[in-house]
C-alpha cells in the first residue's frame, strides 16, 4: 500500500511540475507583449534587450496615446457592432435551421445537411475572391454591412451542426405534448426548443463572437475608410508603417483589444468546453 501511494504522489508531483513549466513557457509570448506595451517606444532598441523593462522605465504612455485617439473608440464600436449583430442573427438563423433539421423528417434534410457539411469543409477565407465579387454586386464594399452577412454565412454551418445535436436530445414527448395542446411550430420553437437548447446557443454564440471580433482577411479586403475599420485592421494598420515600427503602440492596442475577449472567455469558459466537446466527442 505504501509504495503504491508513493508512486502515485510522485507521478502527481511530476504532472504538476510539467504542467506548471509548460504553462509558463506557453504564456511567455503574451507576457512579453504586455511588458513591451509598458515600455516607452524609445527603449525598444536598447541593448541588451530585456524581457521585463526596468522598474523606473515602466510607463503607461502607450495606452494613453491609444486611448486619446478618437479613432480607437470608433474602431472599437465598429467591432462591437459587427460582432453583436453577427451573433444575434446567426443564433436566430442557425437555431431555427437546427430545429427543423433535428425535429422534422423532411426529404430535403439530407440535402441541406450535406450543404452544411460542405460549407464547413471549405472555409470562408478560401472563397474570398468570389465573395468579393458578390459584395461588389450587392454594393456592400466599404460598409460594415459588407462584413456582417458574410460572417453570418461563415458561422451558420458549424452553429447549426452544434445546436442540432442538442435539439435531437430534446425528448420527443415534450413536443408531442405541446402538439396535442394545439401549439403551432413557431410556439414550439420559441417556447420549448429554444430554451432547452440555450446552453448550445450560448456556447455557439460565444465562439461566433470571437470569430467576428478577430476576423482580419475579409475585413481588410472590404473596408477602405479608416473610420469604418474594425480593431484587427486598426492594429495591422498601425504596424504597416515601414520607417517607424512603434511596437509599443501596436501592443498597447493589442492588449486593449484582448481584454474583452479574455474577460468573456474567463467568465464563460464552461460554455466553451461544452460547445467544443459536444461536437468532437460525438464525432
Amino acid at each position: 500500500m505504501r509504495s503504491l501511494n508513493r508512486t502515485k504522489i510522485r507521478s502527481m508531483v511530476c504532472r504538476y511540475i510539467l504542467l506548471a513549466l509548460g504553462t509558463v513557457i506557453f504564456t511567455l509570448p503574451m507576457i512579453y507583449m504586455i511588458s513591451t506595451s509598458l515600455r516607452p517606444n524609445g527603449a525598444l532598441y536598447e541593448y541588451p534587450p530585456r524581457f521585463f523593462p526596468k522598474w523606473e522605465a515602466l510607463t503607461l504612455e502607450n495606452y494613453c496615446y491609444i486611448l486619446s485617439q478618437s479613432k480607437f473608440y470608433l474602431n472599437f464600436l465598429n467591432s462591437v457592432f459587427v460582432s453583436l449583430t453577427t451573433i444575434v442573427l446567426a443564433a436566430a438563423l442557425s437555431s431555427a435551421m437546427a430545429f427543423v433539421l433535428g425535429k422534422f423528417k423532411l426529404k430535403a434534410n439530407r440535402l441541406i445537411f450535406g450543404f452544411i457539411i460542405l460549407s464547413m469543409i471549405i472555409p470562408g477565407t478560401t472563397m474570398i475572391v468570389p465573395q468579393f465579387e458578390l459584395a461588389t454586386k450587392l454594393n456592400l464594399v466599404n460598409h460594415l454591412w459588407g462584413l456582417i452577412p458574410f460572417y453570418i454565412a461563415w458561422v451558420i454551418p458549424f452553429s447549426t451542426f452544434m445546436i442540432k445535436g442538442f435539439m435531437e436530445n430534446i425528448p420527443g414527448e415534450i413536443m408531442e405534448a405541446s402538439w396535442i395542446d394545439g401549439a403551432n411550430v413557431w410556439t414550439v420553437f420559441t417556447q420549448i426548443a429554444l430554451p432547452l437548447a440555450s446552453p448550445a446557443v450560448a456556447s455557439v454564440s460565444i465562439f461566433n463572437f470571437l470569430t467576428a471580433w478577430e476576423e482580419y482577411p475579409w475585413a481588410n479586403t472590404v473596408i477602405n475608410d479608416t473610420g469604418k475599420r474594425t480593431l484587427p485592421i486598426a492594429i495591422a494598420g498601425f504596424f504597416g508603417q515601414h520607417q517607424f515600427t512603434q511596437w509599443g503602440y501596436v501592443f498597447a492596442m493589442s492588449v486593449l483589444t484582448l481584454i474583452p475577449v479574455i474577460l468573456i472567455f474567463i467568465l464563460c469558459q464552461k460554455f466553451f468546453v461544452q460547445g467544443l466537446t459536444a461536437g468532437s466527442v460525438k464525432g
Partner: peptide, 17 residues
C-alpha cells in the same frame, strides 16, 4: 483556462507578437 488563452488570442495579435 491559461492554456486555452492563446486560442482566443486573435491571429493578428499573436502574429505580431
Amino acid at each position: 483556462v491559461i492554456n486555452y488563452l492563446p486560442v482566443v488570442t486573435s491571429w493578428v495579435i499573436a502574429s505580431l507578437v
